[in-house]
């Protein structure tokens, strides 16, 4: 082994390395091949007029018919707009808030409190959307909800029937999203900060840099590559939305559709009765495809500016 390593340093540096590295990756590759790639024959469904009797391969081809419903009405514009804008908000606000939390948690520097805060902030992530829907309802329902009954009463505000007032919902949904995921997501950044070479901070401290300056000039820039990686991954899924957040939390209230309808909820509502296998496959393929194009473009852009941080 030693001989190979030495030889490789001289000339065929990369070639010699492929084997062992591949071996390490192999178990993972096999798993992905089986779990993710093999079932991909399912995408054919998007182009089929599905018949249970004939099965996936026997069913008749129907061209792009299954995709038509995604673009047929002006709802197409609303749901696409909502999906994109919410995801953009989640990416930006989610990242900022998670980093903020992570820095605070990291700077505590005391184990017991780190434990308590981190543990508590993670709990919302364990609740199902149905339950989250109940909680939000407890706050916002018109007759017995907290906001109307306690807060607005105390401040003398007029009661609002929240579930038929679209205006505040973008904020409510963003708040619920942050509440549910911020704590868990911050953990990624805590661990990234933990990986920063501590001597950099020490040097900065010796130079008299304040804590604030250290954070802004060292910690935040060091998170750049993690932020880029996570953002690129989010862009890949930018046409998807968290169904529960947009369906259960607004209690499926029709008055709110203009601000709560996303591609996923539209597809769900539209196919509830039809139960069409081909059309739901088409919707998923459409969502993936757009995400794929966007992420390849974004990745190319990143590669151009900062090749180190490109995803692939």
């Amino acid at each position: 082994m030693t001989a190979i390593a030495k030889k490789s340093r001289k000339g065929k540096y990369k070639l010699a390395k492929t084997g062992p590295l591949m071996m390490i990756a192999l178990p993972g590759i096999i798993y992905l091949l089986i779990n993710n790639y093999l079932p991909m024959f399912g995408v054919f469904l998007a182009f089929k007029d599905y018949s249970y009797m004939r099965g996936i391969f026997g069913s008749k081809w129907c061209g792009l018919d299954n995709f038509e419903f995604l673009f047929a009405t002006k709802d197409a514009w609303i749901m696409t707009r909502n999906t994109l804008l919410y995801n953009a908000a989640f990416i930006v606000l989610g990242t900022v808030c998670s980093i903020f939390l992570a820095i605070l948690i990291y700077e505590l520097g005391e184990k017991r409190r780190v434990k308590i805060f981190q543990g508590s902030l993670m709990l919302p992530n364990l609740l199902s959307w149905v339950v989250v829907g109940f909680i939000v309802y407890a706050f916002l329902n018109a007759d017995t909800g907290f906001v109307n009954n306690t807060i607005l009463k105390a401040t003398g505000g007029a009661p609002v029937s929240w579930y038929s007032t679209p205006g505040p919902w973008p904020w409510i949904l963003i708040l619920v999203y942050l509440w549910k995921f911020m704590g868990t997501n911050s953990i990624i950044y805590v661990s990234t900060i933990a990986g920063i070479d501590k001597s950099i901070f020490e040097a900065a401290q010796l130079d008299g840099a304040s804590k604030w300056k250290q954070i802004m000039l060292i910690t935040v820039p060091m998170l750049k590559s993690t932020v880029i990686t996570l953002t690129l991954m989010s862009i890949g899924r930018i046409f998807y939305s968290d169904f529960g957040l947009f369906y259960q939390v607004p209690q499926n209230s029709g008055r709110l559709f203009d601000v709560t309808q996303t591609i996923d909820t539209y597809v769900y509502r539209g196919l509830m009765e039809l139960n069409d296998v081909g059309m739901s496959a088409a919707a998923a393929l459409y969502q993936s495809l757009v995400g794929f194009i966007l992420v390849v473009a974004a990745n190319a852009l990143v590669r151009k500016i900062d090749s180190e941080n490109a995803l692939f």
Binding site: N36, P39, M40, F41, L45, R237, S280, A284, F292
Partner: peptide, 8 residues
Amino acid sequence: LFNGGVVS
């Protein structure tokens, strides 16, 4: 990004 869906 891509998956073959539940059925497959």
